[in-house]
Simulated scan of single mutants.
Amino acid sequence: MPIRSLPETFKGPGLTITAVMLAWAGLTGSAPDALALSDTPSGQALVGQNGEGSMERTPLPDPSAADPSGGWPGGEAMRHDPDGPVPEVLYDFDLLPEPVARMRRLIIEACRSGDLERLRPLIGEGPNATQLTLGPLEGNPIDFLRESSGDEDGQEILAILLEVMEAGFVHLNPGTERELYVWPYFFAVPLEELTASQRVELFKLVTAGDYEEMKSFGAYIFYRAAITPEGRWVYFVAGD
């Protein structure tokens, strides 16, 4: 599995993690440059494979699962409260509520298809659309994802999303209106406390150099994704 780094655009002399943060937050006035692979070697209907090898259609999430208040969390795809308790790292996807498991499955199927357009019905539109940037997003969300990818067809960003959704996860704010299931768990776990095996998992997403930079910054700031208990895909963002 290739290891992906933070955008190479932000790795020149004198550029800091703060520059990464501002750029990904949309504060530089332009969309983020395409993500580069590390130099380290290392229609609307989605389909799934059944056990006999034939194809079966997987239904899209029920639109009624969307938050009627619109737009939660309103741009707050920030890191978990560093002063709060560290949540348990989970790997058992059977623990996910059915709507969450369903949306995760649809995202993974879309990523594995290699077709960026298959994310469109999952992202949705309007105030309940999946948040893709910490700053304002104007225009087509699929075009935004394609432009954020290191290749012209968007397969790199699909690979990153796939790695995110296959990682361990955390369950945040259970029993509250802000309850979320978030991938990968690095979003909510102090980076300096990662075990050796957890660092191996992290290096599937970022380089060792990125890890040291993020430790200095104080948070994991690469891509993460969240789904509500009702199965709404809230965000897929990078930055802080």
Rank of each mutant, 00 (worst) to 15 (best):
P63E: 08
M165Y: 04
P85D: 15
A65D: 02
P7M: 15
E177N: 05
L106S: 01
W183A: 00
F236H: 04
R118M: 06
R104L: 03
V200I: 07
Y235I: 00
R57S: 14
R102M: 03
G75R: 02
P32D: 04
S64A: 05
A196V: 05
L172S: 11
V237Q: 02
Y185K: 05
H80V: 05
P41V: 07
L134C: 02
Q155A: 09
S5K: 13
G70Y: 00
N173R: 08
I160F: 03
R232P: 00
M103G: 00
I142S: 09
L161M: 15
A110H: 01
V20G: 03
P121T: 08
T40A: 08
L202A: 05
G70F: 00
R79V: 12
S38F: 10
S216F: 12
G114D: 10
T18Y: 10
R146W: 07
E192R: 13
G53E: 07
S148H: 12
T18D: 08
M78D: 12
S69D: 04
P41S: 14
R146C: 12
P63V: 11
G12V: 07
Y185S: 06
S5T: 11
L116T: 08
V89T: 13
T16I: 14
P229D: 04
E230I: 02
E192H: 10
A31P: 15
P32T: 06
Q49I: 12
E8M: 12
L162H: 15
P190I: 15
G53C: 08
A110N: 02
L137W: 02
G51F: 07
L27N: 09
R120V: 13
L132H: 07
E192K: 07
A66C: 13
M214K: 07
E213R: 14
G12R: 11
G75Q: 03
E192D: 08
P184L: 03
I221E: 05
G139A: 09
P63A: 07
P59C: 15
F222Y: 08
G239A: 07
Y220H: 06
E213N: 14
P2F: 14
P7T: 12
L15M: 09
Q198Y: 08
S197E: 11
P63L: 11
G114N: 15
V86D: 04
E88R: 10
I221W: 03
S197R: 11
A77W: 00
I160H: 02
A34G: 10
R120A: 11
P174E: 15
A31E: 06
R105S: 13
H171M: 04
R4L: 05
G239N: 03
R105L: 04
R232K: 06
P85S: 08
Y235E: 03
D210A: 03
S38P: 09
H171C: 06
A31N: 05
Y220V: 03
A196L: 08
M21I: 07
V237W: 01
G51D: 09
P59S: 06
T28C: 12
R120N: 09
G239K: 01
E230R: 13
R104H: 03
P136M: 12
R104T: 01
L95F: 11
L122K: 01
L119C: 04
G139C: 09
E52K: 05
G126Q: 05
S64N: 09
F10E: 07
T9M: 08
R224N: 10
N128K: 01
A34F: 14
